[in-house]
Design a protein around this nucleic acid. Structure first.
Lengths: 212, 212
DNA sequence: TAGATTGTTAATCGATTAACAATC
DNA sequence: TAGATTGTTAATCGATTAACAATC
C-alpha cells in the first residue's frame, strides 16, 4: 500500500483510536457503524474520520456506514499491526515493568520478547513471563530473535549507549521515554514519549484558562 | 498574563521542551543563547522558537539572544510552574509507582502529595516517601491537602469512578493514562496520555516508510 | 423510490516558514 | 559603526471543516 501524498502524523495518531474503538464495538456485537456515531464516541468530527480513512481507500458503504470487522481489519493492515512486532525493553524499573505488562500492547499485536537491565537485583527476575537479561547480551538477542522495536526506559545518562546497542543488534524502531535527543542512523525511526509535557500542559491551562 | 489570541496546543507543548533545555544550559553555566543555537539543540527551527516566545512577550535582546536564566524564569511563569502544584496519583501499580518516583515531575515543581490504591497489599507501603492510602479516603484528602491535579493509572474499569471521586474532592485537572473518555464537569481540565499510540506510529512508519 | 451516509471537492482556518525592519 | 539577532509582518503550506454529488 503506497500513497501518493504523505499522510500527516495527525492522521496516523488517530488510526489507533479508531481501531481500539472498533474492537470494543466488535466485542459489543455491533456490525455496522457510521462516521457520525463513531465520531460521537471518540469526540472526533465525522468529516475528520471519513477524511482520514479516504487517505488509504474507500472502506465504507454509502448510505450504510462501515462494517466494523472489515474496517478494523483494514486499519490493522494500514498501521502494520498484523506483523506482530517483537519488542525489547531496556531498563526494567517501574516504568519498564509497567510497559512489559501493558495489556494494550499485546492486544495491538506487539510481543514483548526481551527485557534488559544492568542491575543484578533485577536480572533473572520473571516479569510477565519473560526473564530479565543483562543489557550486555541485548544486541545479540535482538539479532537472534529478530526483534524490530526497542523501548528505552533507562536513566537518561545511559540512554544513548543503550540506543547504540539496540542499533548494533539491528533494531528498526525505538520508542524512548528519555527526554533526550538520541542520535541514531537515519534508517532508524525514533519516537519519543515525554510524560512531563502532559502535566505541564495541565499546569498551563489551570494557570491561564481556568474555566469558572 | 492574558493573551488576546488563543495560544495553540502546539506552542504549549513546546514550552516545556524549551524550559528543560534552558535548565541544562543553566547547569552548564551558559548565560546567553540564541534561537539559532537553541533550535539546533532541540531540532526546532529558530523562527519557530521566536514565534512561540513572542506569543507571550519580547524576552530576547536584539543582536544578542536570550538570557538563559531570565527566559527560563519567564517560561516557568507562563506554564504556571512556580505554583508547585500538588498531585494525587490513583492506582499504584507499576505505572503509578514509576510516576510517583519520576524525577522530572519534581524538577518541574510538581509535588506528589497523595498516593491511592484499593489493594491492601499496596496500601500502607511507602513509595518515594509517601504512604499509599485507601482510595476511599481520596476525595477527603484531596480536599484537605488542596491537591489540584490528579493522575489516574488505574485499570480502565474503575477509572470513571476514580475520576468522580477526584472531582468530588475538588480536583482541578486530571492526567489520565486510561484509554477512555472520562466524563467530568466542564471546569475540569483533562489530558489523556496514550502510550500505545507511540508504538502504533512506529509500526506504521516501519510498515509504510521503511527508509533504506 | 426515499433516506441515509459515504467519498470528494472546495472553502476556511490555523500553523509554520520566510523575509526583513528594528535595534542591541 | 558593523554585525548579529530579535520581533513582526507577509507568504506559504497544510489540516480541518463544510458542502454536496454519488450511490447504497
Amino acid at each position: 500500500m503506497r500513497q501518493k501524498k504523505a499522510i500527516s502524523d495527525a492522521v496516523i495518531e488517530r488510526l489507533p483510536l479508531y481501531y481500539r474503538d472498533l474492537l470494543l464495538l466488535q466485542d459489543a456485537g455491533i456490525d455496522i457503524i457510521s462516521s457520525e456515531k463513531l465520531g460521537e464516541r471518540l469526540g472526533i468530527t465525522p468529516e475528520q474520520i471519513r477524511k482520514d480513512l479516504t487517505c488509504f481507500g474507500a472502506f465504507g458503504k454509502k448510505g450504510v456506514g462501515y462494517y466494523v470487522s472489515e474496517l478494523s481489519q483494514q486499519i490493522v493492515e494500514i498501521i502494520g499491526l498484523e506483523q506482530h512486532w517483537k519488542i525489547a525493553i531496556a531498563g526494567i524499573g517501574h516504568l519498564g515493568w509497567a510497559l512489559a505488562n501493558y495489556k494494550t500492547f499485546g492486544r495491538l499485536g506487539f510481543r514483548t520478547t526481551g527485557l534488559f537491565d544492568v542491575d543484578h537485583r533485577i536480572i533473572g527476575q520473571n516479569v510477565g513471563g519473560i526473564v530479565v537479561t543483562p543489557t550486555s547480551e541485548m544486541s545479540e538477542i535482538i539479532r537472534r530473535e529478530d526483534i524490530q522495536i526497542g523501548i528505552i526506559t533507562t536513566p537518561a545518562s545511559v540512554a544513548q549507549q543503550v540506543a547504540d546497542q539496540m542499533v548494533e543488534g539491528g533494531i528498526r524502531g525505538i520508542f524512548s521515554f528519555v527526554p533526550l535527543r538520541l542520535s541514531v542512523p537515519d534508517r532508524i525511526f525514533v519516537f519519543r514519549e515525554d510524560l512531563s509535557i502532559g502535566l505541564s500542559r495541565i499546569s498551563y491551562y489551570l494557570t491561564n484558562k481556568a474555566r469558572e
